[in-house]
Structures are given as C-alpha cells and as structure tokens.
C-alpha cells in the first residue's frame, strides 16, 4: 500500500486571515531581505541582517501555513547545501586575494573606480562577501528553526505509535 505519510502539521495551521496576510507579506519581506544584502556595503544592514530577514520570511510561512508549505519552497537538503556553499564562497573570496606578492588572505582584490563610490557596484569584494554571507545566514537560521521544530514531529510520531499500540492491545484483549 502506498499511502502518503501523514504530516503532523496537517490541520495545525493558522486561520485564513493569518494565511492570507502571510501570502501578501512574504514577497515584500523577501525583497527587503535581498535589498539589505545587496546594499549592505553602502547602507546599514549587510549579509547577516539581510540573511536573517530572508530566513524570517520562510519562518513566517512555517508558522502560518505549517512546515510542509515552507519545506516545499525551501527544503532541508537545499538549505543545508546552501549553508555550506555560502560559507565556502566567503572562504574562496579570501583565498582569491592571496594570489600575488604583498597580498593577504581576504585582500580586497577588486578595484572599483573612485567615481563609483556609494553606488551599488562599489566596495570591491564587499558586495560579493555580503551575498555569500546572506546565503549562509538565511539558510542556517531557517535550518536551525526547522530542526528545532522537528523535535515536535518525533514526539508526535512517538505519541501516535504508542496510541496505536495501546489500541492494538485493547482490541487483542
């Protein structure tokens, strides 16, 4: 028999109002997070702050519509890989700066013209670092949140199994 596994968050989601508002808000929240990451080198914010905002959009979806809805958009496997990729990008950027004489690990090796100061494409490697950090933080915070809520699932499954066993014993006797 091939029945789909019952997820414990079914029927545990919030009401229509919360779900509708979340549907409207998730886009702007994601956009704001991406803005914070991309403009991190010229305005307040940056990779970490922006990453947290991006993760919070997915956390909001989890809270409003249940875990399945958010995991369909951003699965644990993808989050875990992006987590490693983000930090690896950051590290590789550091390595790229060490190629020549007199250079250092994490040298800023991209020269941007002075006229470009305070525009989006300035700051050398800083915007790329912010993007790497944004990817890492967004996926890591979302992962931490999902993994912490996963304990409920185990508990719930255990409870279900114990209930089923009790029923079994009752019907046997």
């Amino acid at each position: 028999m091939n029945t789909p596994r019952k997820l414990p968050d079914e029927g545990l989601d919030m009401g229509v109002t919360v779900k509708t508002v979340t549907r409207w808000l998730k886009g702007p929240i994601l956009l704001f997070g991406i803005y914070l990451v991309l403009y991190g080198h010229i305005t307040p914010g940056g990779g970490f702050g922006g990453g947290v905002v991006i993760a919070s959009a997915f956390i909001l979806i989890t809270l409003a519509s249940g875990e399945r809805a958010s995991l369909q958009l951003f699965s644990k496997g993808v989050a875990s890989r992006l987590d490693s990729i983000g930090l690896l990008m950051f590290l590789v950027l550091g390595w790229l700066g060490t190629g020549w004489a007199g250079s250092y690990f994490f040298s800023n090796f991209i020269n941007t013209p002075e006229a470009a100061q305070f525009t989006l494409l300035s700051g050398g490697i800083m915007p790329i670092m912010n993007i790497a950090l944004g990817i890492k933080v967004a996926s890591a915070i979302f992962l931490v949140f999902t993994l912490l809520t996963a304990f409920h699932i185990v508990e719930q499954e255990l409870e279900d199994r114990l209930c089923a066993e009790a029923h079994q014993q009752e019907s046997n006797s």
Binding site: R81, S84, L87, L88, L91, G94, F106
Partner: peptide, 21 residues
C-alpha cells in the same frame, strides 16, 4: 607568513567541502 591563516582556512574549507561533495 602566508601559511598562518591557512591553519584555520584549510580545515574550515574541507569541513564544508565534505558536506557538499
């Protein structure tokens, strides 16, 4: 001199690489 940060960067990089590949 150039090796000093590598004591930290190499194990960190490999730890991430193992997760990826």
């Amino acid at each position: 001199q150039a090796l000093i940060p590598m004591f930290v960067a190499i194990p960190l990089g490999l730890s991430l690489l193992i997760q990826l590949v």
